[in-house]
Amino acid sequence: MTKITFVQPSGVEATVEATSGLSLMEAALHNGVEGILAECNGAAACATCHVVLPKAVYDRLDAPEDHEEDMLDFTEAERQPCSRLSCQVRVSDDMDGMVVHIPGE
């Protein structure tokens, strides 16, 4: 189990136990984290699971694919340098302790 903390735009935090291999979006949904709507359930079709990762983690991951890259440019909350769609990020053991921000609109 990997511990991940989601921080709401209001500053409220929730730390959840995420299963490695699942997506970050699933980790949020499975634990009732607010603010990650994930309307398309991970098909990279809706851009409602936008999160901002820590820079070190962002840099370590493969770059977003073109489709995600384009979606990120027009999410509800403005894109930040380490923005990702959480449905496209797989949880791995080395993310233990990671703090993820949910951007406000």
Partner: peptide, 12 residues
């Protein structure tokens, strides 16, 4: 059609 920007901007 394979145009995610168009979708998101159009939806807005």
């Amino acid at each position: 059609l394979n145009a995610p920007r168009a979708y998101l901007i159009g939806r807005k």
